[in-house]
Amino acid sequence: MKSLSKLGFVYTIIAIILFFLCWTSCQTEPYKQGRKLYELHCQNCHQKDGNALMALIPPLAGSDYLIEHQEDLPCNIRHGMKHPIIVNGMPYEGEMPANKILTETQIANVINYINNAWGNKGPYVSYEDVLERLEKCKK
């Protein structure tokens, strides 16, 4: 009887640990793949904190352009940008390179990460949204 209760205690501890591990892994990072893709394909220019580089490269953190141009983001990511834009009142005219190797799913993951990182509160974007928005820039 005594050994049984001891065993029960061990199981309870393991259950608590497992629950804690699952809970933290679900809670802390909803867009993990998006973050990894961001680090690989975007961070060199837009930087880890999303603040980019002075007046040379536009910020993503707290960017009005990002929120107002959700419809254009998939095309901007896939084909890059050549036209000047205004972000938070500042003009930016540098060229953004294309990211042809990102799939539609990956583009959705990156946008969802950017939309929610650094205090941003952008909408959720689905794979279908990305497919639809990419129709505009099909060549």
Partner: peptide
Amino acid sequence: THCPTICPTVKAQML
């Protein structure tokens, strides 16, 4: 100036 890879990161650190 047209560097699409590491230069902006290095410039941010130089700053």
